[in-house]
């Protein structure tokens, strides 16, 4: 691809997002560096998905600032191409499995042979090489999510946002998805992921960001978070008492 100058750290300063004057999220100040996965926890409606979309620039904050502080953070090309996101419900193009992975590679200017090799290699890693010629939309839910991860992985992003990637999957498919996420993290990509599955958070997270009613209640290393959360809200959540 291109010379890999670092895009990270990603800095959020007092970021807020409102719709029609109603604050959905606010006062968010966070920093993401290279390293092990960060998981974002919180009850439904706490603003987890919104936070990822703000980080990924799919929406613009109404207050505050999202900035990339690394050496390539000023390069718009790098800001567009060196980050990726996978959604809870994978959005797959109405094309073959292989073409879905090749699509963004083409956008990044790779030639046909390189695209194919890269795409096949990553499909192999997620166990979908045998389905390369299948139309993507006829795959099972688990296969679709693995394909979405493969498509993101092929881009070798510096940071990957994952929005509840296994929320709709059965335990078997969830395990496969987690294994892929661990491999992606091991290959050097920073993972920022939301989940409502505490077990999954324990398995994957290096540190936890806990959101409550649109604000960061705490950011704590994983082990500490699950043993003795700092905030009352997080304590209640871990004990299963906090539902909103």
């Amino acid at each position: 691809m291109h010379a890999r100058l670092s895009l990270l750290p990603l800095q959020l300063e007092d970021v807020g997002y409102s719709v029609n004057g109603q604050r959905l999220i606010g006062g968010i100040t966070l920093r993401f560096e290279h390293g092990a996965p960060t998981l974002v926890l919180g009850p439904n409606g706490a603003g987890k998905s919104l936070l990822l979309r703000l980080c990924h620039s799919l929406i613009q904050p109404t207050t505050g600032k999202v900035s990339w502080l690394g050496p390539s953070g000023r390069n718009p090309q790098s800001r567009r191409f060196d980050q990726a996101m996978v959604f809870q419900k994978p959005v797959l193009l109405r094309r073959s499995v292989l073409e879905n992975v090749e699509f963004p590679l083409k956008l990044r200017g790779l030639n046909a042979t390189t695209r194919r090799d890269k795409a096949m290699a990553v499909l192999d890693r997620v166990g979908l090489a045998g389905l390369a010629q299948r139309p993507a939309r006829v795959l099972s839910g688990g296969e679709q999510q693995r394909l979405a991860l493969a498509r993101a992985w092929a881009l070798e992003p510096q940071i990957l946002f994952l929005d509840e990637p296994s929320a709709a999957l059965d335990p078997g498919a969830t395990r496969q998805v987690e294994a892929i996420i661990e491999s992606i993290a091991a290959s050097g990509t920073k993972i920022v992921m939301t989940t409502h599955d505490l077990g999954q958070a324990k398995r994957l997270a290096d540190d936890i960001i806990f959101l409550h009613r649109g604000s960061v209640a705490e950011r704590t290393p994983s082990a500490e978070f699950f043993n003795q959360p700092h905030s009352d809200a997080a304590r209640a959540f871990v004990q299963g008492d906090l539902t909103w």
Binding site: L58, A84, V91, L93, R95, L107, R151
Partner: peptide
């Protein structure tokens, strides 16, 4: 509506998305 976030995430601008959407909406 279905594709916007994903395509923008992959780095497409709306103008560049035209061909993609026409092809994917072919049926």
């Amino acid at each position: 509506v279905e594709y916007e976030e994903q395509l923008r995430s992959l780095g497409l601008t709306p103008m560049k998305a035209i061909a993609t959407l026409l092809w994917d909406g072919r049926y």
